[in-house]
Write a protein that binds this DNA or RNA. Structure first.
Lengths: 246, 246
DNA sequence: CGCGCTATTGAGAGAGCTCAATGTGCGTGG
DNA sequence: CCACGCACATTGAGCTCTCTCAATAGCGCG
């Protein structure tokens, strides 16, 4: 069950290197983290609101979401997570979950004990800073989402989200040439963007007709990157990626 | 200009003790941080989107906000900050501001050099964890705001925000008995909640008529705490305060 | 004690929602 | 390899919550 699969940690290292510099020693220390790899079905809860987890979940394959449930069946998706992400890294210092984490697609994840991560941050203060930075970027993305939900139209919100996800996928080598997988249904998009799936559908139709995007069977192509970023007010600064993107 | 005013740091210590335990030695180390205290007018920018600050801003008196500006004069307020808060603590590991910070009211703030804070986190790893925790709670509040903006009605959003601000003020000794100052205009409320000030006005009228709140000349009284939390789906877990609140 | 910003109220409009029906694609099992 | 079933996507019609525009009132600061 427990192993030190270099391939598994490769994804985490690639992700961290997209936001900070890692020394060889630090890379090695990450490689040596004990992990338990697990295959999960689509739409399966990993951690639930109210839980007090003792490990973090690293996404290796597939997509995950964090979400909150409200009264009357309302749901809000808080974030999308792709390979390389540790969606519940905040658990290191917040002991009670204030939301849930679930897979969106069939996925492979690796669980890392909190104690191993905390030990790592003690031994490598620079790495502690990098993991801290990772959670700060998480917060920066929430700020951008607050902005979208508060002051952007449905069309701008969708376009903005596509730009964000494309750049995040590109940063870990899962996208290029303005093409990527978009492993979400219109229902999930609506729960993330505070809209209804019916309205999402109509806006997507409009974006297609304006030839800004192609989206078919989970494959997104951004046909006009500049125009899409312009109409959605997209500025990648908030992703705090290490190298500026074209 | 630089000093070690024990009173100034008292506010920060009170805030940190509302979310974590501090040892005497740690309290002392915080007291010894070099600070530059400054009085500011209302509605004055402290740090701007795009800046690369070399210090953090601790609020001592008055309220501050973080905000983003969009095209066509749109503004989104991202968070409200009260005494004891360090609204730009993320600057320790995110070097470019992705939003602005400004006073809302006349305010007193203390600036703390990044290098002093980073040095503190190196010498006191436990304190590093506590500051990290502080930024994680910041993110938890953003998550709750995303949820509000996405899936709560105007009325629920306002009620939820009032509950949040009351508890945060209470945690640092600035509120009790369900009364507190609410140092925001309806325009600022609208920019925080993604609504218009006209609509805020109408919903406030409704909340008053239902005798849930009294709000007059910046003084808020929550007349029916239980009902207000119920109607707004408010669960204080996300604030991750150290002692559960009544 | 008057100016300017904030609060309040009315009337009409619009972005996005609800309800509902139909079409489509894909995974599963025979 | 094909047929079935189910979840997802698409479209239409009518509605509502919130917005826009606009006018007036009130309050706090200089």
């Amino acid at each position: 069950m427990f192993s030190s699969d270099p391939n598994a940690m490769g994804m985490l290292i690639r992700k961290l290197e997209s936001i900070a510099f890692l020394s060889e020693e630090e890379r090695q220390a990450i490689q040596n983290l004990p992990i338990r790899v697990q295959a999960l079905r689509a739409r399966q809860d990993i951690v639930r609101d109210g839980d007090r987890p003792s490990q973090c979940c690293l996404v290796l394959e597939g997509w995950a979401v964090r979400y909150k449930l409200l009264s009357e069946g309302r749901r809000q998706i808080l974030s999308f997570h792709i390979p390389g992400d540790i969606p519940d890294l905040q658990g290191l210092h917040l002991h009670t979950m204030d939301h849930s984490l679930a897979t969106l697609t069939k996925a492979t994840v690796a669980f890392i004990p909190h104690e191993s991560l905390l030990d790592l941050t003690t031994r490598y203060p620079t790495l502690a800073g990098i993991f801290w930075r990772e959670t700060l970027i998480d917060a920066a993305i929430f700020r951008e989402w607050v902005t979208s939900m508060g002051r952007r139209s449905a069309c701008e919100r969708i376009a903005h989200l596509f730009c964000e996800l494309y750049l995040r996928l590109e940063a870990v080598g899962l996208a290029s040439e303005h093409r990527c997988e978009m492993l979400v249904t219109q229902i999930e998009l609506s729960d993330a963007l505070g809209l209804t799936s019916v309205h999402i559908n109509r806006v997507l139709k409009d974006l297609r007709q304006r030839e800004l995007i192609t989206l078919k069977s989970r494959n997104l192509t951004i046909e006009a990157w500049n125009e899409l970023t312009r109409t959605s007010d997209f500025d990648p600064t908030y992703l705090h990626q290490r190298r500026p993107v074209a």
